[in-house]
Computed example of a mutant assay.
Amino acid sequence: MTSTPRWTGILLAAGRGRRFDASGQRDKLLQKLADSKSVAQHSAQNLLAAMPQVVAVLRPDNAALSDQLQAMGVECLVCHDADAGMANSLKHALRTTADSAGWLIALADMPAVKPSTMTLLFNALQAGAEIVVPVYQRRRGNPVGFAHQYLPQLLDLQGDVGARSLLQSNPVTQVEVDDPGIHQDIDTQDALLNHLHPDGKANA
């Protein structure tokens, strides 16, 4: 009897967010949006809407975020060397879910990505695409998806560039989306304010 292939959504949530607050006192992922859910909760919610399983990678000192995400049904993984670069967080999640048929890799500071975008990318992976990226107004964005065959290359990544190098050196399926959120990350306090008040009134 053949089992259904396992697909995994990976939420990268282990960054320090120094551009948001150089002092490290305010974690951008815990900032509340207009509906009182945090930035990371929104990002997780959007990924959960499309993926059958979601794991998040966190720093060891972020119990508050872990509690929030676990309450939503997200499995939280602690990466002890996350500060050495995003690649370490990603590889930690990949090793833990190495039996997956593929992965959709999302960033926890991008709460504006539409669930429909996540679904379109996941559908493309299930249909046989090996690498998928969303495109809005001719610009690529996040999240990105990889089929299992790219696991060795993903596990070779180093530093803080993420999987960008693989997108530049391999065939990519571009999925056109009507979603400016694929370009919008909350990396500064101004970006948070713009997300909350894009037209001068609160919006989540």
Rank of each mutant, 00 (worst) to 15 (best):
194 N>S: 01
79 C>R: 03
101 A>C: 13
150 Y>D: 06
129 A>F: 14
148 H>Q: 14
125 L>N: 12
148 H>E: 14
17 G>I: 07
123 N>A: 15
46 N>I: 03
123 N>F: 05
9 G>S: 12
165 S>W: 03
153 Q>R: 15
19 R>L: 12
138 R>C: 09
16 R>P: 02
94 L>M: 14
134 P>F: 13
198 P>D: 03
137 Q>A: 14
115 P>W: 03
26 R>H: 03
61 D>Q: 09
91 K>R: 15
199 D>G: 10
172 V>Q: 05
91 K>A: 13
55 V>N: 03
157 L>N: 14
132 V>P: 02
31 Q>D: 01
81 D>W: 04
158 Q>D: 13
174 Q>Y: 08
110 M>Y: 02
175 V>Q: 07
3 S>W: 05
68 Q>D: 06
41 Q>I: 08
106 A>Y: 10
64 A>Q: 08
48 L>Q: 11
93 A>K: 05
115 P>Y: 07
106 A>Q: 09
137 Q>K: 14
169 S>L: 07
174 Q>P: 03
15 G>D: 10
169 S>A: 13
63 A>K: 07
37 K>Q: 08
182 I>H: 06
80 H>T: 10
136 Y>V: 06
159 G>V: 14
67 D>M: 04
135 V>D: 01
2 T>W: 00
2 T>N: 05
39 V>S: 01
112 A>Y: 01
137 Q>P: 05
27 D>F: 00
1 M>W: 05
33 L>Q: 01
187 D>K: 12
89 S>E: 04
137 Q>H: 13
101 A>K: 13
142 N>L: 15
121 L>W: 07
99 D>M: 09
98 A>F: 11
112 A>M: 06
9 G>R: 11
143 P>W: 06
4 T>D: 05
67 D>F: 02
81 D>V: 12
95 R>L: 12
200 G>H: 05
69 L>W: 00
78 V>S: 04
98 A>E: 14
74 V>M: 07
174 Q>M: 09
13 A>R: 04
138 R>V: 14
12 L>N: 11
113 V>I: 11
200 G>W: 04
136 Y>Q: 04
32 K>T: 09
183 H>D: 09
198 P>F: 03
104 L>Y: 12
85 G>K: 02
88 N>R: 06
204 A>T: 10
87 A>M: 09
183 H>S: 12
161 V>D: 15
119 T>F: 04
192 L>Q: 00
63 A>M: 05
181 G>A: 09
39 V>A: 02
107 L>H: 11
116 S>H: 08
165 S>P: 02
115 P>H: 04
113 V>A: 02
54 V>T: 13
129 A>S: 15
96 T>L: 13
200 G>M: 09
87 A>Y: 08
154 L>R: 10
114 K>Q: 08
5 P>M: 12
49 A>F: 03
184 Q>E: 13
172 V>T: 08
126 Q>D: 07
90 L>P: 03
195 H>T: 09
158 Q>A: 15
189 Q>Y: 00
87 A>R: 08
133 V>H: 07
148 H>T: 15
